[in-house]
């Protein structure tokens, strides 16, 4: 009856889609523990892209809003996943303001 809760050690599949002029990832699907905060997701993506700290990076969900950086990945995935995959768009300029 109640929606399933994703436990802390469950893995969540995240698919990163590039938007605008942002660099393209070779591999765009990653698994993270459900308890990961968005801040960590953003910094890991930054590392994958080789993007220095001073360059802006924006992460969007559903091509419309940016999840709070202190949000728990499992919660956002439960709310907004499509067939078990959370699709996030990343870009270097605000895309959906």
């Amino acid at each position: 009856m109640a929606p399933p809760v994703i436990r802390d050690d469950d893995k969540v599949v995240v698919q990163f889609n590039h938007t605008g002029s942002a660099p393209i990832l070779k591999q765009n699907k990653y698994k993270f523990p459900a308890s990961t905060r968005f801040l960590t997701i953003a910094s890991q993506l930054r590392a994958q892209l080789g993007l220095p700290q001073e360059e802006a990076l924006f992460l969007y969900c559903k091509q419309s809003f940016a999840p709070p950086l202190d949000a728990r990945l499992g919660d956002i995935a439960l709310c907004f996943h499509v067939d078990g995959v959370l699709i996030l768009n990343y870009c270097q300029t605000p895309a959906w303001g």
């Binding site: 109640a2 929606p3 809760v5 728990r72």
Partner: peptide, 24 residues
């Protein structure tokens, strides 16, 4: 803090109570 999707009605047809969200 946590969040999760909470349907306004239970599958049984009754209204979802605050308790139902918190317990899950």
């Amino acid at each position: 803090w946590r969040q999760q999707p909470a349907a306004p009605r239970l599958p049984s047809g009754g209204s979802t109570r605050l308790y139902d969200v918190l317990v899950s």
